[in-house]
């Protein structure tokens, strides 16, 4: 019986954590490059998912084309978000930039309402990944898709960041923007690139999250909060750690439900995050 419970913690934890983790990756990409918390991250997923759904309605999308289309749509959405928020206010206080992403999240929701209505919509499953069952371990196909997408995008992003010139420029910008500029790096372009990559990631995540929960105009904030929490646990900087933060958050929540009850889950989770932040080693100190 105990083994079954443990297996279920892993099953449910991964189902929750995969979504949190993939959201957290987008947060950390933007945060590490631009020191900005992007409140519109959930809405990037929403609009990315809805666009792909509409595209799938008019033409047959093979899995590869779907991946490419989602990436491209998200890339454009991310660029658009950058152009209307940070790109306009490069010298503003970080708080004003943060609040601009809040306004942008409202604009994105408004677009979703006008173009797709207020009813929840169910996007089709475009990636042919089956349910996985190994004894008591079970991964639903949406969870499996999310995990696979997250791992692949982490590897690709990791290679891009360490092996290419542009990737190194992006990392230089995130470590020290002034020094990077002095070395001839176009830091504004790097900021824009981080938004675009985060957008692409969110749209790809929509391929997994959309069929699991449906897409509705007001889903962004709930997803964004958990992604933000996961990114905080992971410490924002390393992609691997941030994704692990998401999985950890999912596992904690599942364990809380199974040992305590769903009633206390949220309270306990958020209290735990406060405690984690407060007792965490001093490396958080003096960080923006």
């Amino acid at each position: 019986m105990l083994a079954l419970y443990l297996a279920q913690i892993i099953n449910s934890g991964l189902a929750l954590g995969a979504v949190y983790g993939i959201m957290a990756l987008g947060f950390s990409l933007i945060f590490s490059a631009s020191r900005l918390i992007n409140f519109a991250q959930g809405e990037l997923l929403l609009l990315g998912g809805l666009s792909i759904m509409t595209l799938a309605g008019v033409m047959q999308l093979s899995p590869l084309v779907a991946l490419f289309a989602a990436g491209a749509a998200g890339y454009l959405l991310g660029r658009a978000l950058f152009a209307t928020t940070l790109g306009l206010t490069l010298r503003a206080s970080p708080l004003r930039q943060l609040m601009l992403t809040v306004a942008a999240s409202l604009v994105f929701q408004g677009v979703a309402i006008l173009a797709w209505g207020k009813n929840p919509l169910m996007p089709p499953r475009l990636l042919p990944i089956p349910d996985l069952r190994l004894g008591p371990l079970f991964l639903g196909r949406d969870t499996a898709t999310a995990l696979l997408l997250a791992v692949v995008s982490m590897v690709v992003l990791g290679l891009f960041l360490t092996r290419t010139r542009l990737g190194r420029a992006l990392r230089a910008t995130s470590q020290n923007a002034v020094a990077a500029r002095l070395q001839g790096v176009d830091t504004v372009f790097c900021h824009a690139l981080s938004f675009a990559l985060a957008g692409a990631l969110a749209s790809l995540a929509a391929l997994a999250v959309g069929p699991q929960t449906g897409l509705r105009y007001d889903m962004g904030l709930g997803l964004g909060l958990k992604g933000f929490a996961a990114a905080t646990i992971g410490g924002y900087t390393s992609l691997g750690k941030v994704f692990a933060g998401g999985i950890l958050l999912g596992l904690i929540e599942a364990a809380l439900v199974l040992t305590l009850s769903g009633e206390f889950k949220e309270t306990a989770t958020y209290t735990l995050i406060i405690i984690l932040l407060v007792i965490a080693p001093r490396e958080h100190d003096e960080r923006p």
């Binding site: 929750l16 709930g222 199974l258």
Partner: peptide, 17 residues
């Protein structure tokens, strides 16, 4: 009896319990 937050994405832990 169990409860969940209706903005959540997965309630499999509750269902299992």
């Amino acid at each position: 009896e169990e409860s969940f937050d209706n903005k959540g994405t997965d309630f499999s832990a509750q269902a299992f319990k």
